[in-house]
Amino acid sequence: MSYFSDIYKGIKTLLTGMSVTGKYFLTSRKGAITQQYPDNRATLKMFDRFRGEVIMPHNENNEHRCTGCQKCEIICPNGTIEIIWDRGIDEETGKKKKKIDQFVYHLSMCTMCALCIDVCPTDAIIWGQNFENSVYDRTKLTRVLNEPESKLMPGVED
């Protein structure tokens, strides 16, 4: 007798399974969970904490907040950040002061661990939300984050 009850139970469970997929089939019109990626570029907004790439914001006077303390360079596990710096004379106080020449960021080596941004004392670098980082030439992934001719924002100290 268990032979027939097995068949009955088997068919019943199969139909239950089919009802689950069948329900999704009927509601498929509004139920698609996939994103139509290149089409939805205009509306696709990443979360504000999204780790896309490291950027260095500049204000309208072409000034950034990086003092060249190199904490990010030390904490980075992969050598992604390289700061080329120099000692310049501060115009106001006349003292010698560290100032960055180039803030080199190797995106190709970055693991997005966020340690550099976590450690930065002046919030000079933040996360950018750009995620379309593919390029045809590997050298384009090495970026200089500070704009040419940019200066340290006045009042920013370590």
Partner: peptide
């Protein structure tokens, strides 16, 4: 198409 509709795709 049918597979996609079963699987919440387009």
């Amino acid at each position: 198409k049918v597979a996609a509709w079963f699987q919440l795709r387009i």
